[in-house]
Design a protein around this nucleic acid. Structure first.
Length: 944
RNA sequence: GCUGGGGUGGCGAAAUUGGUAGACGCACUAGCCUUAGGAGCUAGCGGGGCAACCCAUGGAGGUUCGAGUCCUCUCCCCAGCACCA
């Protein structure tokens, strides 16, 4: 029996078609419904290996579930609107519609060669009026709900092609077609208010059993941050600068305010500004910058608004106002309070501009090295202290204190006594502890908090350490008390020596500030120089401070409203017309579908192609009257794909977008398989649509997809991403011709875990080995014979495979599923007789993976109907209960051998048997084990 | 930089609640069969050692009778976000 895969595959497909195997029966109320969804393809015209990976592997699961008695909906369609069709039109003068339909026809043929069990009767094509009229209807629903808005916004513009570009057409700030740097242009655009759903899109994630990776990517995209609005009045004016901050606890450290160049206040303040020209020039220069230039050059720039000042809301001090492009106009309020001591960007800007830095939070160190590890369980006393770095009067050396009682190297320290300032304490302590008399405080580094266990005093201390740098003027010294000199030795060290000498982290911190200059501290800690809040925990005092300065708690999201206008032809027309006043009006349902006109010019002219249609204008005039004008933009194709999974349930419905009863039964989608590139945009948009429609009572669920799996990527045979320029592109058709569709399916299933987004190299030998496996299966079938009873061991092997393969399918781990089938084949091959019944069970399990050859061999065995109508082999639990098992014998946790023991043996007997094992006895060297661990069926550990 | 996911043979990868590390396959080696083989069959295949054994899941510690799996630190790779206040 030769394996003529071409003939076998053709025959199998004809058989399935004649039996109409894959049309899902919506009226079935007995079987459990299961909705298995794969992202529908764009009809690019050529089916590549990635399509195979997406559809053929997911098909394995669809088939497996059907065999397991589920009523499976496994639909397919085309995401048929989009740019490539229009580019083909521009480049080669083809009609986008013809081009698309021709491609779809070709792709349907190619998809068929995979042998997938799609239910084609549910096919959805987004560019068909029967589909897009409902995209339009849903848009109108959102518009009526206030979720679609018409407003001005910046768009990407290619000056060379004279056309607006979609975000995804901008690669590294350049036009994807001509590599010209993209500019921004302001146009009135349609937005869907996804921001209204930001919080629900975020909290909804918690209950979804998706991989953390996917959920985190969505969380990052939504970008929630909690903070407050604070207001900084402008001296002598009515306007106030409203800022957003997540760190109101640092407000006392705000030493200037910054406005984004596009902030409305900048132009409002211009008359009052004395350096008006400079400010205007800066604002203009920023506006000229492309997105690329802004993100490339992270060097801080900005201009001070001379002649105007803001009032600090806590201290009432006047602080300067700057305009700087490191502030993003569209985030928060487009203005911020700058705290250079506690924000990296503000620190950088302040250093460049020479703006004062004010520390308001003390960095905190818990001592984590011996001696003096902080003991959180014991009480802690708080006090102020000093940490002083002292320079020698002649040499480049600094004073270290080497403690005698403990292995502790420090700078000079001391407690600040009642009534003394830290500065006074510096003079006092230096004199007392070292005897040096003449010195000068050169630098103050602010405050650092140290929490440590004071070994001599035997208690925890929390010291607010005021850091100083002091230079001795000369070596003149008076005698110090015995008491002082007995505690420590004075040593003069270089900076490098000091670094390893110092024990407490706070002292290392002091040295670091001396060597590297001020660094912003962005953590939490005790507040200092913060008026009545000084000494408080920054985190605890945060919201009280907001209240104190008259601020308002608020939450900001990074996610922006979804811009859905595209100045493109091949898309769903936006169902809007403008009345003579220019007000947008939704197109009434009776005029839907609002057809895409055909008399248009696609050549990029800087205007939307629909504007060139005479028919469209005539249509509007005829239906709505003189003075009414059409909307010329079309919808982003992500809108089309945000609800297609609802349409699959009722693709031909002329009266509604879907069927309420069917949605109730089939939604949410049980499992959605797709690519990781759709983790944020598509998945968020589809979730947003579902939630919005749920609120309109149009959809019965508020999350569309219960499970989501991102599949991996197939790389070229060289392990590199496939690309024409590398010449490593794998053409699936070649392999299908040579080895057959079943071998290709098996290999794709076997190549790696399907439940994680890894990348797997294609391998010629790998596909060939799957072909060999299938040939072995054929030879095995030839050996099959009628045997009255299947042996127990074979029965168990089949049961093991059945459980393993279905469990692995549920986890989307087809690689180990295939391995289990291979193991079963190995066992069948090894058995003297191959019972037909055993082989049938195997073929039913192989069928989801290799549907064609399984069908063929099923017939050879004389099976009735189609193998794809057969039930998955299910076994009684008792089949798997084994009377004996191999148990590993360990001595002190090391393997010394193994025993085959009855599973119901007592621990005592098991241990006796283990001790009788020569290797175990030798390892025990005649001694009795002090303890034994027995895990039945697994392990016996004798601990000596 | 931040967040998330990972590091296991020459390669793709396996490993329920902690319980024989490397299943299954590729490549490779030896042998058999064959006119021949890009076929088939048998055996081997983490490292060291004649062997008993010893060492091995990025590295260092720890918990445990027992750790790829749990904890702490650290290095490296991948992905997402990134001047988001």
């Amino acid at each position: 029996m030769a394996y003529d895969h071409t003939e076998i595959e053709k025959a199998a497909r004809e058989k399935w078609a004649s039996l109409n195997l894959y049309t899902v029966d919506f009226s079935d109320n007995v079987k459990d419904p299961y909705y298995l969804l794969v992202e529908f393809p764009y009809p690019s015209g050529d089916l590549h290996i990635g399509h195979w990976y997406a559809f053929a592997v997911t098909d394995i699961y669809a088939r497996m579930l059907r065999a397991r008695g589920k009523n499976v909906l496994f639909p397919i369609g085309f995401d048929a609107f989009g740019l490539p069709a229009e580019n083909a039109a521009i480049k080669n003068g083809l009609d986008p519609k013809e081009w698309t339909y021709k491609n779809m026809e070709r792709m349907r043929q190619q998809l068929t060669t995979m042998g997938p069990s799609f239910d084609w009767s549910k096919e959805v094509v987004t560019c068909e009026p029967g589909y897009y009229q409902w995209t339009q209807w849903l848009f109108v629903k959102l518009f009526e709900q206030g979720l679609a808005e018409h407003r001005e916004a910046a768009v990407k513009w290619c000056p060379k092609d004279q056309t607006v570009l979609a975000n995804e057409q901008v690669i590294d700030g350049c036009c994807e077609r001509c590599s010209t740097p993209v500019e921004e242009k302001r146009l009135t655009q349609w937005f869907l208010k996804i921001t209204d759903y930001a919080e629900r899109l975020l909290t909804g994630l918690d209950a979804l059993p998706w991989r953390e990776e996917i959920k985190e990517a969505q969380r990052a995209w939504i970008g929630k941050s909690e903070g407050a609005y604070l207001e900084f009045p402008i001296v002598g004016r009515d306007e106030k600068i409203k800022v957003f901050t997540t760190r109101p606890d640092t407000v006392f450290g705000a030493t200037y305010a910054v406005l984004a160049p596009e902030h409305a206040l900048v132009s409002a303040l211009l008359p009052a500004i004395s350096n008006k020209k400079e400010v205007e020039a800066y604002v203009h220069a920023t506006a000229q910058k492309t997105e690329r230039e802004r993100s490339e050059n992270k060097e801080k720039t900005g201009v001070k608004l001379e002649g105007v000042n803001a009032v600090h809301p806590a201290t009432n001090e006047e602080i300067p106002i700057f305009v700087a492009d490191y502030v993003i106009g569209s985030y928060g309020t487009g203005a911020l309070m700058a705290v250079p001591a506690h924000d990296e960007r503000d620190s950088e800007f302040a250093q460049k501009m020479g703006i004062p830095v004010r520390q308001v939070i003390a960095p905190r160190y818990h001592q984590t090295t011996e001696p003096g590890i902080y003991r959180p369980e014991e009480p802690t006393t708080e006090k102020d202290g000093i940490i002083v770095l002292i320079k020698h009067w002649k040499e480049e050396k600094y004073l270290g204190l080497k403690w005698k009682e403990v292995a502790w190297g420090t700078l000079l320290t001391g407690g600040v006594d009642e009534g003394l300032t830290p500065e006074e304490t510096v003079f006092k302590e230096i004199k007392e502890e070292t005897g040096y008399l003449h010195l000068q405080i050169k630098q103050k580094f602010g405050v650092v908090d140290g929490l440590f266990y004071h070994v001599p005093k035997q208690k925890n201390q929390h010291v607010h350490g005021h850091m100083f740098y002091v230079e001795l003027k000369d070596g003149e010294q008076e005698a110090i008390s015995k008491d002082e000199s007995s505690k420590h030795d004075l040593v003069w060290l270089t900076v490098e020596e000091l670094e390893t000498f110092l024990t407490p982290d706070t002292h290392k911190h002091t040295l670091n500030l001396f060597r590297n200059g001020p660094q912003p501290y962005t953590g939490n800690g005790s507040l200092v120089s913060s008026g009545e809040f000084s000494g408080r925990e920054s985190e605890d005092a945060k919201w009280e401070i907001v209240k104190h300065v008259g601020g308002e708690k608020t939450t900001q999201y990074r996610i922006r409203d979804w811009l859905v206008s595209r100045q493109r032809y091949w898309g769903c027309p936006i169902p809007i017309v403008y009345d003579p006043e220019g007000k947008p009006r939704p197109i009434p349902k009776e005029h839907l579908p609002w057809l895409l006109p055909t008399d248009v010019d696609f050549t990029p002219t800087g205007k939307a192609p629909l504007a060139s249609s005479k028919e469209l204008q005539e249509r509007v005039t005829k239906l709505f009257g003189e003075g009414w004008t059409p909307e010329y933009d079309t919808l982003d194709t992500f809108v089309d794909s945000s609800w297609y999974f609802l349409r699959y349930l009722d693709p031909k419905d002329l009266h509604d977008f879907s069927d309420a009863a069917l949605m109730k039964k089939w939604m949410p989608v049980n499992r959605y398989s797709g690519g990781s590139e759709h983790t944020t945009m598509h998945l968020l948009y589809a979730r947003f649509f579902t939630k919005a429609l749920y609120d309109l009572a149009l959809v019965p669920v508020d999350e569309p997809f219960t499970e989501r799996f991102n599949r991996g990527l197939i790389m070229g045979p060289d392990g590199q991403k496939m690309s024409k320029s590398k010449g490593n592109v794998v053409n699936p058709d070649e392999f299908v011709q040579k080895y057959g569709a079943d071998a290709v399916r098996l290999f794709l299933a076997f190549i790696g875990p399907y439940n994680e987004p890894g990348s797997y190299p294609w391998s010629l030998e790998g596909v060939a080995s799957m072909r060999k496996f299938l040939e072995r299966v054929m030879r095995l079938t030839e050996r099959a014979q009628d045997v009255s009873e299947v042996g127990n061991e074979l029965q168990q092997a089949i049961a093991r495979a059945s459980i393993k393969v279905s469990k692995d399918g549920d986890r989307f781990k087809f690689n180990t599923g295939v391995a289990a089938l291979m193991i079963l084949v190995n066992e069948l091959e090894a058995s003297v007789a191959v019972p037909k019944t055993a082989l049938s069970s195997f073929l039913v399990m192989l069928a989801p993976f290799a549907p064609h050859i399984a069908e063929y061999l099923w017939e050879k065995l004389g099976g009735e109907g189609s193998i794809h109508q057969q039930a998955w082999p299910v076994f009684d639990a008792s089949t798997l209960v084994e009377s004996s098992a191999e148990v590993v014998v360990q001595v002190n946790g090391k393997r010394r051998g193994s025993l085959t023991l009855a599973t119901d043996i007592s621990e005592e007997e098991a241990v006796r048997a283990a001790r009788a094992l020569p290797a175990a006895a030798a390892a025990l060297a005649g001694k009795d084990p002090s303890r034994t661990v027995y895990v039945p069926g697994k392990i016996i550990n004798l601990v000596g």
